[in-house]
Design a protein around this nucleic acid. Structure first.
Lengths: 144, 144
DNA sequence: ATCCATTCTTGACTGATTCCAGAAAGGGGG
DNA sequence: CCCCCTTTCTGGAATCAGTCAAGAATGGAT
């Protein structure tokens, strides 16, 4: 887990101003992977840091643009953010409880970038979402 | 393109009541792949069929549950619907204009169902979204 | 220390989707 | 072919995530 000064340095390296909301939000994303915006707001405020929800939305957009966090949008869920960037990894989403876990790509570094027919598109990224049941939800599903 | 009676039969085979809104919505999804809800409402009304937007939302949910249409939610876009179901195919989304095209899976029928570490999840589906630029948007991107 | 651009706050607003309750319509059994 | 019950449709209001706008505050280069 990065320290407060690590976080600060990340901001500086991205040529971003270092402000209290940014430090708090970025630290929170590192502490709570896959958190949605509301959870992030709650977590930041729990640290006794007073921020408007607007500021959090702004900061998350800026951090995403700067590549410091990654925004993921699982089907049927609001936007979530994570700090793991730069490696091409994907996600499993539980159909039962919505839990999200990271998975590395089975094939290679740029795994699914090969579509059978790309229709002339210039493809630069592939988002993969696996859907299934987490270990905890599997027993419940069998009962029904 | 399925005829009106094909559409009707699809509904019956799914044990769904045959109603005007359902016929119209299902036909529209066949005619306009990747349409969002608003476009579907507009297209249905253009056929002089008067439906409430609520009915369209209902019908789409019912058809999705019955497996007659598939709901897709590209990042940064509202929900869209398509009639191609049952085959495991994916989508390319253009970063420029938002256009969506179908792509078959490069690897096989159940392509990316193999995650390197599945965390104990029971995975039954993989959604893949390729992001890039469509042929039309590529020249514009180069200018910037 | 000062100044300007950037960022934050407050509060209102949009747009997609859902909830609700009553009205209407499908279709299997008679 | 008709009736009744269940499912579906209508219209309106509500919710929820996310965005817009204008003014106040703050970071950091000089």
């Amino acid at each position: 887990m990065p320290t407060a000064s690590d976080i600060e340095q990340m901001l500086r390296e991205a040529s971003l101003r270092v402000t209290r909301p940014r430090l708090a939000v970025l630290a929170t994303v590192h502490e709570h992977p896959h958190a949605d915006t509301d959870s992030i707001i709650a977590a930041v405020r729990a640290e006794m840091i007073d921020v408007s929800h607007q500021a959090v939305y702004d900061v998350l957009r800026v951090l995403t643009t700067a590549g410091l966090v990654r925004r993921i949008q699982p089907p049927g869920s609001v936007a979530r953010y994570e700090s793991r960037v730069g490696d091409n990894h994907h996600h499993v989403v539980c159909r039962g409880c919505g839990m999200i876990a990271d998975v590395d790509c089975a094939v290679g570094d740029t795994p699914c970038l090969i579509a059978s027919d790309d229709h002339g598109f210039d493809i630069d990224e592939a988002e993969v979402v696996y859907l299934g049941l987490c270990p905890e939800c599997q027993p419940n599903a069998r009962i029904n």
